[in-house]
Design a binder for these strands. Structure first.
Length: 543
RNA sequence: GGGCGGGUAGCUCAGUGGUAGAGCAUUUGACUUUUAAUCAAAUGGUCGUGGGUUCGAUCCCCACCCCGCUCACCA
């Protein structure tokens, strides 16, 4: 998937109607344009879109959603402004944050325990592959984003603090310290209120990020004074150069100001935080970015998805059974509605995505701008023609017991004469997904059983008959052979149904299956004979 | 309590200021020398309630009811 985010090649017909387009990325872009108009300022300054990331965990489906959606707004903005404004998408990693607790999903957890509260960039990498735990997770984040082709700039909080990029804003924060306290303190419980400070000094003695109250402040010198929680000594430290980091709501505001952030989305659980950070941002003398609150995802039972619960669907799971484009579509649709995110939404998303790219070329400019595929592919969806839907493919793979792409293609060709992987490369990808679906969902459901004496005799007869069958026998001929093997071994017109059910249960592990003559033709006569042998010997049962 | 989202067919959900849509489910038919699948068709809705704006409201506005999520410690 490519999200080039260039304004190049804007269709003039589309441009003519873009101002009437109500698709949400355009509505967002318009709010952003209104902000820029309000603010005035340098038209040469790049417009900054930010997404934030906490490197104590791994990137997940929400990370994808936020970057994908932000990229859609960014592209809509570039089209609306006809490329006259430069844009940047900053992916900011809050990697100076202290290690709160030892994550359960990493090796060498014991080793990590002694680094609690140290900045994540000062915690050794438990995987042993990077300079620090944060570096490791940052790298994971970047390769995660890169695999989708997102265009972004990565920024490390630690680098930003240490480089002095934040210094001016940090000094400003010190000047308006009282205002910041007035904003935050009323929102805190009494316990935290006693210790709160927008500045979290990094102890020169222990290297830990401290949550301690300030006992003195010197705005002119740019320093703060606190008591070392263990020694009780007074410590004076600069707020600049990475000697302190900000508590997160202050940090967010500080970042907006220091990086000139114009647009940032957040989940709706952060609505209050955004409001507080915005007030701090104003206290710093700046204007908070335009924001957008997207809904959280629910699992199949309508419960909130949480990583610790492990409910819902991971991005790995989605990408195992469907394309990133289908996931982009899911993210595009109704960002403000709480949507269920579980396996069953995947086939629908895939088929809707396919339908959108299929109808795109014949649509009017206005329709194209409201076509999700336009937003998923930055205005240029690929051409695509699909003879069958993904939902049908999943049915086919289950019904036909097609355990590999070749067999499945055999069934597809019966269904759609002339189809081939070369002619329908996109369908071939879907075939790959369908086969995985089969392996993971259909196959485990199979329940093989031993053949009864009658079935064993009939199967043996079938095997002998197949041995004599022409290698190129038609499905029709093979179906007759199956039929005969049953009729001459204890089944009659009324019980023939049992014969077929027996075949499915013994050989395929299901009580229903494909038309068996067709199955043999596609699966192969020698292969079918081996399957019969395995069924009779009990090997299928054992496996 | 504050904030947000939702209430449309049996189910899951689209959608639009002008005769209401899809998928699944159900029913029927076609094709199959068993099924499944597939194909065709049909059935099915006072668009949460009450007002308002309008020639006209499921859609816009107001109020209300119900459901869900979220925040109130930390990030």
């Amino acid at each position: 998937m490519t999200i080039p985010n260039t304004h190049n090649g804007i269709d003039p017909d589309e441009l003519a109607v873009v101002h009437a387009c109500r698709a949400w990325p355009f509505e967002e872009a318009r709010r952003l344009i209104a902000r820029l108009d309000r603010l005035g300022g340098d038209p040469q300054r790049p417009v900054v879109f930010e997404t934030g990331y906490g490197p104590s965990g791994l990137p997940h489906i929400g990370t994808f959603g936020e970057v994908a959606r932000t990229s859609m707004v960014r592209h809509a903005f570039e089209v609306l402004t006809e490329g006259r404004r430069k844009t940047r998408l900053v992916c900011f990693s809050d990697d100076m944050d202290g290690l709160r607790k030892v994550p359960g999903n990493v090796p060498n957890g014991d080793m990590l325990a002694e680094y609690l509260d140290k900045p994540l960039t000062s915690v050794p990498d438990p995987f042993g592959t990077h300079e620090s735990f944060a570096h490791h997770n940052n790298a994971r984040l970047r390769s995660f984003l890169d695999q989708f082709g997102f265009e972004y700039e990565f920024l490390s909080a630690t680098d930003c603090y240490r480089s002095g990029m934040m210094d001016a804003t940090l000094l400003r924060m010190l000047e308006v310290y009282d205002q910041v306290m007035d904003i935050i303190l009323p929102t805190l419980g009494p316990e935290r209120r006693a210790t709160y400070s927008p500045f979290l000094p990094v102890s020169p003695r222990t290297g830990r990020v401290l949550q301690v109250p300030m006992v003195e402040r010197n705005a002119k010198a740019g320093t703060i004074v606190y008591l070392d929680p263990e020694t009780g000594e007074k410590v004076e430290t600069k707020v600049t150069g990475g000697a302190v980091k900000c508590q997160w709501k202050a940090d967010w505001a500080m970042r907006w100001v220091a990086l000139d952030v114009d647009y940032e989305m957040a989940g709706k659980d952060l609505i209050d935080s955004v409001a507080l950070s915005s007030r701090i941002c104003k206290a710093l003398g700046s204007t908070p970015p335009e924001g957008f609150n997207y809904e959280l995802f629910l699992d199949d039972k309508g419960q909130k998805i949480s990583k610790t619960k492990g409910n819902g669907l991971s991005i790995e799971e989605w990408l195992t059974y469907a394309s990133p484009e289908s996931l982009s579509l899911y993210m595009y649709q109704k960002p403000k509605t709480a949507k269920r995110l579980f396996f069953d939404v995947i086939p629908k998303a895939v088929d809707e995505y396919l339908a959108h790219i299929a109808k795109f070329p014949s649509e009017s400019p206005k329709q194209r701008l409201e076509n999700p595929a336009w937003h998923i592919h930055s205005g240029h969806p690929p051409a695509a023609e699909l003879p069958i839907s993904f939902a049908l493919l999943l049915n086919l793979v289950s019904a036909s017991n097609a355990h590999d792409a070749g067999v499945l293609w055999g069934f597809i060709k019966r269904h759609v004469p002339g189809a081939s992987p070369e002619r329908y490369p996109l369908l071939d990808k879907l075939v790959g997904y369908a086969v995985r679906y089969y392996a993971d969902f259909v196959k485990p459901q199979k329940q093989f059983r031993a053949a009864t004496a009658t079935e064993a005799a009939a199967l043996a007869a079938l095997d002998r008959a197949l041995a004599d069958a022409a290698p190129d026998a038609t499905a029709e001929t093979l179906q007759n052979i199956v039929y005969e093997a049953g009729k001459s071994n204890g089944y009659d017109k009324d019980t023939l149904r049992d014969w077929f059910r027996g075949i499915y249960e013994v050989l395929l592990g299901e009580s229903q299956g494909p038309r068996f003559g067709s199955f043999i033709a596609l699966y192969g006569i020698p292969e079918t004979r081996r399957l019969i042998a395995d069924g009779l010997s009990g090997r299928l049962l054992a496996a």
